[in-house]
Structure formats: structure tokens, C-alpha cells
């Protein structure tokens, strides 16, 4: 269970972007969070993935209260989340080749030994051919880079996925392909999903249930 309980967060204590938001995702469940741009849903996604410290409220992950945010979060809690963001260009370190991009979380956790096999298996799954793995982000298209970013999010086999407007920049076919990869992973791992977006048709097709921001902020 991923529980966000009365979360208030923002970038300025005096003017929080979101106030008193409560939302929970059951294990294995996929929840689509719909809302207009600028409403604060991305901030909520970052709070849920322990990447932004809220000003109030609490986050409970599988019954365990979040111990901190960003680097202060225990590594086991941080790595329980796989995150994918809207803009692949900003989500990829421009100096890393795609293979290293995907392998980075393994190396950061001292699991370099698994890199070769895991990277091969995952990049194949997201549809990246071996000829692309040696390239740097500026040498591939948005769609290809987002595929690599999704592979990176899955590499530690997280129990929770947080996708913040993952497909907003992508065409219909790449969108369908990435959603299919996410769903396949969830089927075999039982991971839960919080998908944030503004495309009602997409989220209703993708997720078990969708919540509109206005229902949460009420």
C-alpha cells in the first residue's frame, strides 16, 4: 500500500502548491491522477516517490512511514520506486551512453555484476536495439530516450512505479508501446502504479481507476 496522507507541499512554505491531499494506491493497483497542468500533480508525484519533502502530512510505503526525502530517505525506500518523467531530455544525464544510463542504478547499488545481462534483457523489452545502446542522449530521438528512461526505472525491479506525464511528448505508437511495457512489468511483478497526466482517454484506458485532481483538492 502506498499512502499519501494529508500531504501539503510546495516550493515556498507560505504558498504551498498543494494542500491536504490524501491518496492511496493498493498493491498491484494502477491509479491514474488526472489534472490540468500546473495544478500540483507533478509535485505530488515527486512527494510520493520521496523526491520532494512535503511541508506537512506523511507518506506510508507498505506500512512503513517514509523516513526522509531525497538522500535522507533510506535507500531501500527510495529504490522501491521507479520514476519516469515527462521530458526525457532533462531526465537523462547528457554525458551517459544509453547502456550506462540504464545500468546506472545497478552500479549505484554495487550490483555491477548484473549489468550485462539485465541491461540486455531490459533494453530488448523496451524495444531499444543494441546499435542504440552506445549512443548518447543527443544522438537519439525523444521516443528512444524515453524508452531508455523507462528501462532505467525498471532496472531495480521496483514495487512502485510513478510515471509523471510519461507520454506527453510522445506519438501514439510510442505511447502505446511504453504503456504496454509498464503493464507487462506490472503483471509479472505485481507492482503498483501512480500515473499522472492530463489525457483522460489515455489514463482511463491505462489504469484500474482514475482520480481527478479536483476530487482530491476538494
Amino acid at each position: 500500500m502506498l499512502e499519501l496522507d494529508a500531504v501539503t507541499a510546495g516550493y515556498d512554505q507560505r504558498a504551498p502548491v498543494l494542500r491536504d491531499i490524501t491518496l492511496s494506491v493498493a498493491p498491484g493497483e494502477s491509479v491514474g491522477l488526472l489534472g490540468p497542468s500546473g495544478c500540483g500533480k507533478s509535485t505530488l508525484a515527486r512527494v510520493a516517490a520521496l523526491l520532494h519533502r512535503p511541508d506537512g502530512g506523511r507518506v506510508v510505503i507498505d506500512g512503513e512511514r517514509a523516513g526522509g526525502w531525497r538522500h535522507r530517505a533510506p535507500r531501500a525506500q527510495r529504490t522501491a520506486f521507479g520514476v519516469v518523467f515527462q521530458q526525457p531530455r532533462l531526465s537523462a544525464d547528457p554525458r551517459l551512453r544509453l547502456a550506462d544510463l540504464v545500468a546506472e542504478p545497478l552500479r549505484a547499488n554495487g550490483r555491477s555484476g548484473e549489468v550485462t545481462d539485465t541491461v540486455r534483457e531490459l533494453t530488448e523489452r523496451v524495444g531499444l536495439g543494441p546499435e542504440l545502446l552506445g549512443r548518447r542522449p543527443h544522438e537519439v530521438s525523444d521516443g528512444q530516450l524515453q524508452r531508455a528512461c523507462l528501462a532505467r526505472a525498471l532496472v531495480l525491479r521496483p514495487r512502485w512505479l510513478v510515471c509523471d506525464e510519461m507520454t506527453a511528448m510522445l506519438d501514439a505508437s510510442t505511447t502505446a508501446a511504453l504503456v504496454a511495457v509498464v503493464e507487462e512489468y506490472r503483471r509479472e511483478s505485481g507492482a503498483g502504479l501512480l500515473a499522472v497526466g492530463h489525457d483522460r482517454v489515455l489514463l482511463e484506458r491505462w489504469c484500474d481507476r482514475t482520480v481527478h485532481w479536483s476530487e482530491l483538492a476538494a
Binding site: D171, A172, T175, A176, A177, A180, V201, L202, R205, W206
Partner: peptide, 9 residues
Amino acid sequence: ALPEREFTP
């Protein structure tokens, strides 16, 4: 591939 149609890539 559109979500309102087959949603297949």
C-alpha cells in the same frame, strides 16, 4: 495505437 482505439503499438 490511440488509446481510444486498439491501443496497440
